[in-house]
Amino acid sequence: MSLYAYLVAGWLLLAGFFGVVRSRDLVHTAVCVSVAQSGTYVLLLGIGFQRGAGAPVFAPGIPTTSPVVDPVVQAMALTDIVVSATVTALLLAIAVQIAKRHGTVDPDELHALRG
């Protein structure tokens, strides 16, 4: 596996953080959290990848000695995606409620909690 996958993973993670820091809209913030999480998918899949290896599925006709990519990281990425769906849905629902109660979704305009 080339270094590029790891660089992309790090880039996505940091881009997500940067997006949250600079965000002017809470929906954008929630999406940036997802972008940061995408970095972890790329990282996990990059870790399990082998050049020339197939999917980790053995059917009749496929010799059990044939190389496959690591299924553990794929299971981890799957779990991670489920987590992401839950968290994103929850954050978006809360953003809708913030829009209703505060009349804005700009984090610079939210003043309910300070100090």
Partner: peptide
């Protein structure tokens, strides 16, 4: 809702 949003984003990150 603001507290919940802050909590959710920071903990997820």
């Amino acid at each position: 809702v603001q507290g919940a949003f802050n909590f959710g984003v920071i903990n997820s990150l």
